[in-house]
């Protein structure tokens, strides 16, 4: 048999497995894949199309109390994705002076120091990346400046947490969850929107004039509550 024939034969495998793999692709794709792919390409600009994808299942909101707070988790059945013209700047292997400059820019943009921010987070978080998402100063200008600062972490149980912060506007989003009339949650006086798609949560909130988008994968609602409490305390 030839490899081409085997490839064709593989096309006839049980459709339930294909469907299962498709769900896997869909579930794991939001944000992580897009940003991950872009981060891998370092400074990489994309212009793309606007796609609306409807996922199966009816949307709804569940009220949960994992710890002290009552959280409204909005189930999402629409994912809207957008490729954006951005560049990623990784802040690794910088010289002392370069790091100093990045820290100054960070503090100026966010209104708090990098160290102060990191100290707010759970100590068990292991940081895996720190970079900025840079947007063009004007269309086709070719000049990009940091719009968002992004931190990625691994949790003790191999969960993934990505925190995107921006003080001047809402963080750029390459993947929107469309949800009509989402219910809000309140944690220590801060109002947050929590969305859930399969094993991912996305949390949007503002605190101390900074806008946060948090994306997680494989972490519990209790861990989300703990993280939010740490940030807003």
């Amino acid at each position: 048999m030839t490899n081409e024939k085997l490839y064709k034969v593989l096309g006839d495998i049980n459709e339930k497995y294909v469907k299962e793999a498709k769900e896997y692709r869909k579930a794991k794709n939001p944000l992580w894949l897009k940003w991950g792919a872009m981060a891998a390409c370092l400074c990489f600009a994309v212009f793309g199309i606007f796609v609306i994808q409807r996922l199966g299942g009816a949307p709804g909101t569940t009220i949960e109390q994992p710890g002290n707070s009552i959280l409204a988790v909005n189930e999402v059945d629409h994912v809207t994705r957008l490729d954006m013209d951005v560049q990623i700047s990784h802040y690794t292997d910088l010289s002392g002076d370069e790091w100093e400059t990045v820290m100054e820019a960070f503090e100026q943009a966010v209104g708090m120091s990098y160290e102060k921010f990191i100290k707010k987070l759970p100590v068990s978080y292991q940081q895996t990346a720190f970079y900025s998402v840079d947007a063009p100063t004007s269309p086709k200008s070719g000049e990009y400046v940091p719009h968002d600062y992004v931190f990625e972490f691994l949790t003790e149980d191999d969960g993934k947490v990505k925190i995107v912060i921006c003080a001047t506007a809402e963080p750029l989003r390459d993947c929107f969850f469309v949800c009509e009339n989402p219910k809000k949650s309140e944690i220590n006086g801060a109002t947050a929107l929590i969305y859930n798609v399969q094993d991912s949560f996305m949390v949007q909130f503002s605190h101390d004039n900074v806008n946060y988008d948090i994306d997680t994968c494989n972490i519990t609602l209790e861990e989300i509550e703990n993280l939010l409490t740490c940030i807003v305390s």
């Binding site: 495998i13 497995y17 294909v18 299962e20 793999a21 896997y24 692709r25």
Partner: peptide, 9 residues
């Protein structure tokens, strides 16, 4: 299974 099908399907 998902890894295999992602690659070969």
């Amino acid at each position: 299974r998902s890894i295999f099908i992602s690659r070969y399907w």
